[in-house]
Simulated scan of single mutants.
Amino acid sequence: MRLGLQVSRFSWEGAPASTGATWRAVARDADQAGLASLWVMDHFFQMAMAGSPEDDMLEGYTTLAHAAAVTERIELGTLVTGATYRHPGILLKTVTTLDVLSGGRAWLGIGAGWYEEEHLGLGVPFPSTRERFEVLEDTLRLAHRMFADDDRPFEGRVVRAERPLNHPQPVRRPPIMVGGGGERKTLRLVAQYADACNLFDTGLGPEGIPRKLEVLRGHCEDVGRPYDEISKTCLARLTMDAGSPLPEGVHGHSVEEAVDRLGRLREAGIDHVIASMANTTDPAAHDLLAEVVRRVG
């Protein structure tokens, strides 16, 4: 079992003047705790379920590059990039740059995109669902080309690139994670193109996850892909009880509760849990995460 951390809120005390120092501390604490991965949302406005659009939100790849400079081992990715936010060729060049500067620690986390308000607010076209999935699949196909130093002309359904040159090449081909549990399209794309899926523990829980993974297994059989090649990840709310005050309604987990929760997710078929914590800036919470990592590793 691998354990990662997602940071989704940046409205920290003293922000924005303190934001850089706070983020560096979070990244270093996560790295030193032995966490496998560190993730940020790739949004430009905060989501309604986590706050309001006016809350602080950092651009994902700039934020990850900053973390890369102050960490040594932890892997870095977005959970997940909307395929419509950036031209696919530019996105893949950006992920490659992060991989090179981090010494081979970048992931490509990607999905079809859904947040219409931030698209329209910033002047980014928001195509239909069908078109967004076409962009996603074209981007996945192009990623396999660009990460393999294949600069032949590319023509997808909606994406064209005359010479998708990508130099330098990644230090390590960035693993591709496709986010979401859509059974007809999203999990099929995982089976065809991705190294990992990402499901949400909230709403599914350990009981609902196996059914999604059985759908993924079926898609793998359809395309001739070994199911075991794909890492099964999920995002789970897991806040360590470090003794400091927590937001109203948030349950603080003990190390034993966290280990039990991860064990149940492992039994459901998950091998990489990405924790969403309400107290990511508390160093004591990272100390507890380090003990969880030791216990489940």
Rank of each mutant, 00 (worst) to 15 (best):
V178Y: 01
D222P: 11
M57I: 12
E75G: 02
R157C: 09
D150V: 13
G181H: 01
L288I: 05
E267K: 06
P153W: 09
F200V: 07
H272D: 05
C234F: 00
W39T: 01
H144K: 14
A15Q: 03
Y61I: 04
R145V: 15
G243N: 07
W39H: 00
V171N: 04
G111T: 08
R172A: 12
R188N: 03
T78L: 13
L288D: 12
E116A: 14
L91H: 12
A258H: 10
D271C: 00
G113D: 06
T96I: 05
S254G: 08
D138E: 07
D151G: 07
L3M: 05
I90P: 14
L76V: 05
E13Q: 15
D29T: 08
T202C: 07
G218W: 09
R266N: 05
L238P: 06
R295C: 15
S52T: 12
E54Y: 07
A143S: 04
D228P: 06
F147E: 03
A284S: 11
T280P: 11
D149M: 10
N198F: 07
M41Q: 09
L38A: 00
I230P: 02
T239Q: 04
P153E: 08
G34E: 09
N166V: 11
L5M: 14
S231I: 10
R145S: 06
P247R: 04
R261N: 05
A148E: 11
A194F: 09
I90K: 06
A194T: 08
T281V: 14
R211P: 15
V190I: 14
E13Y: 11
N198K: 01
M57K: 11
G104V: 15
G51C: 02
T63I: 01
G182L: 11
G20W: 08
V171H: 08
T22D: 08
H253S: 15
V7D: 07
T22Q: 05
R2H: 15
M177D: 08
P283H: 02
A67C: 04
S102Y: 06
S37N: 13
Q32T: 01
L120T: 12
M41I: 06
R264E: 00
E155R: 06
C234E: 00
T62D: 12
R184G: 04
A106K: 01
A242W: 09
A161D: 15
P153F: 03
R163I: 12
G34I: 05
S254D: 03
H219G: 08
F154G: 11
L235F: 05
D56H: 10
P125D: 13
L58A: 02
A48S: 12
Q6Y: 02
V70C: 03
A65K: 10
G180T: 01
